[in-house]
């Protein structure tokens, strides 16, 4: 077995003539939480979009378990065990918790007229999952997402990743707009996910949140990796901030 769950090698990405990523090589080990940091425009989201199949790299390769993987669509990424939770678009607000949990992977019942969904199985699974994630135990699974708080929404999104046993969970700004208590519980979910065998990539503007939970920090600047092995236990936040902004930060 390879040492790393995911490895991206020599990834470059052009949007027209603009180069968003230059020769990025970075990996995520088994049961590891990696914090991906960088200023606006550093290339974090482009890198994540490539890994989750939203866009394709101009050049470079992705390896899963040491084997070359072909990720062309979001469906490919999900089938390969990569689950991405975007900050605003993780869930469909108008749909119920149950329908969101199974969106894109609806279980079909034996009676297959137009792919009828297996509502009984979906409801049962949603109920069990909501109990497991704790914060949401009072909420019926038929509740629309729009009626949930920000933290509850993150909980549902993370619960979904756990339910489908995704090997890599990518969280894009999961603590944005959350209160102190909810932030703490979301970071706890991330820890629990790792402890139960998943790997995570965490993107967050709030470096304090990242420091609380990650095992390793990778920093991008201007589309390149400027540091890929920062240990948050041995490094200060100020130091990481300096790496993020770079030596030219003093200039306007």
């Amino acid at each position: 077995m390879a040492e790393e769950l995911v490895r991206m090698e020599h990834i470059s990405k052009f949007y027209g003539r603009v180069q968003a990523l230059r020769d990025i090589t970075v990996g995520v080990r088994y049961q590891e939480i990696v914090g991906l940091l960088g200023d606006n425009g550093a290339g974090k989201s482009t890198l994540i979009k490539i890994l989750s199949g939203v866009v394709q790299a101009t050049s470079g390769e992705i390896f899963l378990h040491g084997r070359k993987a072909d990720i062309r669509t979001t469906a490919d990424a999900i089938a390969s065990g990569i689950e991405t939770i975007y900050q605003d678009s993780a869930l469909v607000p108008q749909l119920s918790i149950t329908r969101n949990l199974f969106l894109g992977r609806e279980p079909i019942k034996g009676f297959r007229l137009f792919n009828r969904m297996d509502h009984a199985l979906m409801d049962q699974a949603a109920r069990a999952l909501l109990l497991k994630v704790g914060v949401t135990k009072d909420i019926p699974p038929a509740t629309a997402i729009s009626a949930l708080s920000g933290g509850e929404r993150q909980a549902v999104a993370i619960a979904r990743a756990l339910y489908f046993d995704s090997e890599l969970i990518i969280l894009d700004e999961p603590t944005n707009n959350l209160g102190v208590a909810e932030t703490r519980s979301v970071l706890n979910f991330v820890r629990n996910a790792r402890d139960s065998g998943h790997s995570c990539i965490l993107i967050a503007h709030n470096i304090h949140h990242v420091f609380q939970v990650v095992d390793r920090i990778v920093v991008l600047r201007h589309g390149t990796v400027v540091a890929d092995d920062i240990d948050p236990r041995k490094t200060s936040i100020e130091e990481v901030e300096r790496i993020i902004t770079g030596p030219d930060a003093a200039e306007p």
């Binding site: 999900i78 605003d88 469909v92 607000p93 108008q94 749909l95 329908r99 894109g104 992977r105 969904m117």
Partner: peptide, 18 residues
Amino acid sequence: NWIQAAGGNPGSALARGV
């Protein structure tokens, strides 16, 4: 489910492989 998701939040639907 896909129809409702496509109109409710297309970005999320896409990210789910819809």
